[in-house]
Amino acid sequence: MNFNFLSPVSDAVLAHNELLSMQALGRKIKIHSSKKGVPDLEGVQIAIIGVLENRNDINYIGEEFQLNEIRKTFYSLFPGSWNTNIADIGDINKGESVEDTYFALKTTIAILIKKSIIPIIIGGTQDLTYPNYRAYDTIMPMVNIVNVDCKFDLGDSTKPIKNDSFVGKIILDQPYNLFNYATVGYQTYFNSQEEKDLMDSLYFESYRLGEISKDITIVEPVMRDANIVSIDLSSLKGSEVSLNQKLSPNGLNGKEICAIARYAGISNKVSSFGIYEYKPSKDDDMTSMLISQMLWYFIEGVNYRVKDDNFTNDANYQKFITLVEDQELVFYKSNKTGRWWIEIPFLTEINNKLKRHTLLPCMHQDYLDACNNIVPERWYKAFQKNCI
């Protein structure tokens, strides 16, 4: 297996790890070291990769960074009652060009996903979501991305890719593999009206910070349908993070971002997970601890995944049919987990790539709304995309 792009975890972190309790996470995971090389990934379900690339930051002034503090903090946490094998396979350093880094990340992610290993990417700038997306080109025909961010990151796709415009490239660059893009936690004043209009015209989903703070559970169905989850640390409230990381007095708090990470982990479809826009500072303890706890909750979620969307056996589910505005809506509820889905009707005369998107995750509230003659918004957007 070709992992030539990866450099080992630093000796300073490994020395710190040796001082930890034998019960700590750092003593229970496989680690890429200069002495032993890349660990054997047989039986590993999750692989952590650092990516030290930040040159496409719109504010880049040549600064370097490393992920040692995050690793030290993460290694020092204690695992839950997990049976998930984890490896830290080290860092992808900056290439000669940003495109070289992209190629290294895309190749590494593709290798891991084909081996049924979930990569956790810690960056660097959020434009690294683009090579993460491109890694799926040879793996699956259509991809769903969830971006936890205060901004949509659509940007001007005619200009070179930056950390605030990578989604425009994902939408317009061939091959066209993006089915759905959802932004979780956006703040209206950080986004232009043109970007909001574009999100609506493409039937993409967006969830305002206020909606999520009011009811965090609305994130769960979106995550259940995601393949790639990308978290921008600028979505966090300034009081939750260290000095260089602060962006806004408003944002997600630590409890909310950890719940979102756990929802991503529980989703059976999420096959890559990234945390981006890490900017170390002298008082870095708060940010590295929060990132470590986000990783912990994501892994906790993966450990408790339940396969509950097999609707071939009548004993596994209950089926509910409602009529809304002359449209028959069909809901399914899993008997195992109580999770809900809604059926998207096929338009058989249209040749599209949606063969696996017949069932859309939803909430119990969507069913109650349908009973009151209200069309669920997720269903409406998915149905419209089906018509395009």
Rank of each mutant, 00 (worst) to 15 (best):
D225R: 03
S242C: 11
L247T: 11
N351W: 08
L41R: 01
N2G: 09
W341V: 01
H364C: 00
F74K: 02
A110Y: 03
F65H: 05
N303Y: 10
I122W: 06
I48G: 10
D308N: 08
A24Y: 05
L112I: 13
L178N: 04
G338H: 03
S201W: 10
Q318R: 14
K106R: 13
V222M: 05
S116W: 13
I49N: 03
T84A: 08
E256C: 08
L347Q: 08
S230W: 05
I120W: 08
N68I: 01
P8F: 11
N132T: 15
M289A: 12
S10L: 07
K282W: 06
N253M: 03
I344E: 05
T337S: 07
D127I: 08
H32W: 10
F5H: 09
C150T: 05
N59D: 14
G238Q: 13
A12M: 01
E69M: 01
Q293A: 09
L67M: 11
A87W: 06
K381T: 02
W379L: 05
F190Y: 15
Q293N: 13
D156P: 00
S288L: 01
I260D: 01
N268M: 13
Q174H: 05
T337Y: 05
I388C: 10
I275Y: 05
S76L: 07
D137S: 02
V229Q: 09
F311P: 05
N59A: 15
E96Y: 11
N177S: 09
S33G: 11
L360Q: 00
P249S: 14
D285H: 11
L128D: 06
L290M: 11
K279I: 10
E53P: 04
